[in-house]
C-alpha cells in the first residue's frame, strides 16, 4: 500500500469513527479507533483507577481509630469498595491493550497522576466525613457525567461505580451532620475540616476549560461529556444547600447566588496550589507513592507463591496424565 492510499484509508476510518461518536454510539474494544483516542482513554482511565486505589490511604488511616464499631464497619466497607472500583477501572483500561504492570509502573515513575485531593492528609475524624461528603460528592458529579462517555467498557464501569458511590457520600455527610449537631468542639471540628477540604475539592474538576490540556479533543470524542467548569459549578450549587442544612459555612467570602445565571458565583481557585500539589509537592505526595510502592513490593511473595502453586499443580496434572 502506498503512503497516499494509507492516508486516505486512515481518513475514511477516522471519519466513520467520528460519525459513530456523533450519533451517540458507543465505541467497543474491537472497533477501529484513532491511536490518540486509545492513548487518551488509557491515560484518563488509568489515572481514574490510580485515584481509587491511592484514595484508600487517607481513609484507611482512620479505620483503627473510628469512634465506634459501627463507624469502623462502614469505613472498612467503603475502603473495600474503593479497591473494587480501582479494579473495574484497570480492567476497562486493559480492554484498550494497556497492561496492569505498565500502568502500575507509570504511577510509580510519576508519569501517571491521580486525583490531587488524596495528597492532603486526613487529620481528624471529621475529615472522614468531609472526604465522603465532598470528595466522593465531587467524584460522583464527574462520574455521573462519565456514564455517558463514548467508550463502552468505561461507561459501563461508571454505571457500576455510581451505584455503589451514593452510600459513600451519604455516610460522609452523616458523619458531618452528627458532628455538627454535637458539642461546640465537635461542630468546630466539622467546620475546620470543611475549611480544609472545600478548595481542594473544587480543584478535583481540573483546570478552567480554557487552560485544560486535553479537554477540547476529549469533548469532541465524547470521552468527556461536560466541561471541567460546568461540572465544578454543578458541585458548588448542590453543596451550598447541603452545608446550610447542617449549619456549616463554606469558606468562600465571594460565594453568592447569582439570580441572572441561576447559579452560585464563587471565588478564585488557588491554581498555584493546584499545580504544586499535582506536580508532587503537596503535603503527602511522597508518602502516598512510597506507601503504594511498598505495598506492591511487599506483595511480591504472594504473587510468587501463587505462580509457584500453579506450576506445581500443572506438573502434578501432567504426571497423572502421563
Amino acid at each position: 500500500m502506498t503512503t497516499e492510499h494509507h492516508e486516505q484509508d486512515l481518513a475514511a476510518l477516522e471519519q466513520r469513527f467520528q460519525a459513530r461518536i456523533d450519533a451517540e454510539e458507543k465505541i467497543e474494544p474491537k472497533d477501529w479507533m484513532p491511536e490518540k483516542y486509545r492513548q487518551n482513554l488509557i491515560r484518563q482511565i488509568s489515572q481514574h483507577a490510580h485515584s481509587e486505589v491511592i484514595g484508600m490511604q487517607p481513609e484507611g488511616n482512620w479505620i483503627t481509630r473510628a469512634p465506634s464499631l459501627h463507624r469502623k464497619c462502614i469505613l472498612l466497607a467503603k475502603v473495600q469498595d474503593e479497591g473494587g472500583h480501582g479494579l473495574y477501572l484497570y480492567s476497562a483500561a486493559e480492554t484498550l491493550g494497556a497492561s496492569r504492570e505498565e500502568m502500575n509502573q507509570a504511577l510509580h515513575d510519576g508519569r501517571a497522576k491521580y486525583a490531587s485531593i488524596f495528597n492532603y492528609p486526613a487529620l481528624t475524624w471529621a475529615d472522614i466525613g468531609a472526604i465522603g461528603w465532598l470528595v466522593d460528592g465531587a467524584a460522583i458529579v464527574n462520574q455521573v457525567s462519565l456514564q455517558r462517555t463514548s467508550y463502552g467498557p468505561y461507561a459501563r464501569g461508571m454505571v457500576r461505580i455510581c451505584k455503589e458511590e451514593s452510600f459513600h457520600q451519604r455516610q460522609g455527610y452523616h458523619i458531618m451532620m452528627t458532628l455538627a449537631r454535637g458539642t461546640a468542639e465537635q461542630k468546630a471540628m466539622a467546620q475546620d475540616s470543611l475549611n480544609r477540604f472545600w478548595w481542594p475539592s473544587l480543584m478535583m474538576f481540573g483546570p478552567h476549560d480554557a487552560e485544560s490540556a486535553h479537554s477540547a479533543q476529549s469533548m469532541k470524542w465524547k470521552i468527556k461529556r461536560q466541561s471541567n467548569d460546568e461540572l465544578r459549578q454543578k458541585f458548588v450549587d448542590q453543596s451550598v444547600k447541603q452545608a446550610e442544612v447542617i449549619g456549616l459555612s463554606i469558606p468562600d467570602p465571594d460565594l453568592q447566588w447569582n439570580e441572572q445565571r441561576g447559579h452560585y458565583d464563587f471565588g478564585d481557585i488557588d491554581w498555584e496550589e493546584f499545580n504544586r500539589v499535582i506536580n508532587g509537592d503537596g503535603p503527602c505526595n511522597r508518602q502516598r507513592l512510597a506507601h503504594h510502592v511498598k505495598a506492591h513490593e511487599e506483595g511480591q511473595w504472594v504473587r510468587d507463591a501463587i505462580s509457584a502453586h500453579e506450576a506445581k499443580k500443572r506438573q502434578r496434572n501432567d504426571r497423572q496424565a502421563a
Binding site: 459501627h70 464497619c73 462502614i74 466497607a77 469498595d81 460528592g137 451514593s166 452510600f167 457520600q169 451519604r170 455516610q171 455527610y173 452523616h174 451532620m177 444547600k241 447541603q242 442544612v245 447542617i246
Partner: peptide, 19 residues
C-alpha cells in the same frame, strides 16, 4: 447483616435526601 453498605441506610434531612 451489613445494611450500612446501602445508601438507604443513612437517614438524612429531606432537603438534601436526593444525595
Amino acid at each position: 447483616d451489613k445494611p450500612y453498605r446501602h445508601a438507604t441506610h443513612y437517614q438524612l434531612p429531606d432537603e438534601v435526601n436526593n444525595m
